[in-house]
């Protein structure tokens, strides 16, 4: 067991964990942050994307011990009193159907807009290449990111 201390959505948590514990399982099963789902074994789908020290990572491909001392933001901690512009834009633009990819897609979009506040359609598509959606065909996701960008989505 390794003792780790992580700030998750603004609250500090400390646990003894097995070294093999995946960050996503740590978040879901130890911290109770079940808003971040697991979609694959190979880091392709991106459903589990969270921000680690402000940068998008796939939490299924990070060990909890690697996150020791860092700050994690999940979909559950993104709203700060009011929804993040990307969350609002996803609803407004119908950028989700079943919603399973949505937490990861939103976190990846937030990261994209943080690094490129006004991306082109091509840049949006490339910026989300690590996140799979099986429902939307991506068109409304692209539109949502454009909408969030227009509303100052990099926040």
């Amino acid at each position: 067991m390794v003792h780790i201390s992580v700030t998750v959505d603004g609250a500090q948590t400390q646990h003894d964990v097995e070294p093999r514990l995946l960050l996503v399982h740590y978040l879901r099963e130890r911290v109770g942050k079940v808003g971040t789902p697991v979609g694959c074994d190979t880091s392709n789908c991106g459903a589990c994307t969270v921000l680690l020290d402000g940068k998008s990572v796939k939490s299924c491909s990070v060990l909890a011990v690697q996150a020791d001392g860092s700050e994690i933001t999940t979909i559950e901690g993104l709203a700060n009193g009011e929804w993040h512009p990307v969350q609002s834009a996803f609803k407004e633009c119908h950028a989700l159907q079943c919603g399973y990819c949505t937490p990861g897609m939103i976190m990846a979009s937030v990261d994209l807009l943080n690094s490129n506040p006004s991306p082109s359609e091509e840049e949006i598509r490339a910026g989300l290449e690590g996140n799979l959606c099986r429902c939307t065909g991506y068109q409304n996701i692209v539109k949502a990111v454009q909408t969030a960008a227009a509303q100052g989505g990099a926040r």
């Binding site: 998008s56 796939k58 491909s61 990070v62 990261d111």
Partner: peptide, 9 residues
């Protein structure tokens, strides 16, 4: 290489 999230790690 890979995608933005993977490139962060």
């Amino acid at each position: 290489v890979a995608d933005p999230a993977v490139r962060h790690r």
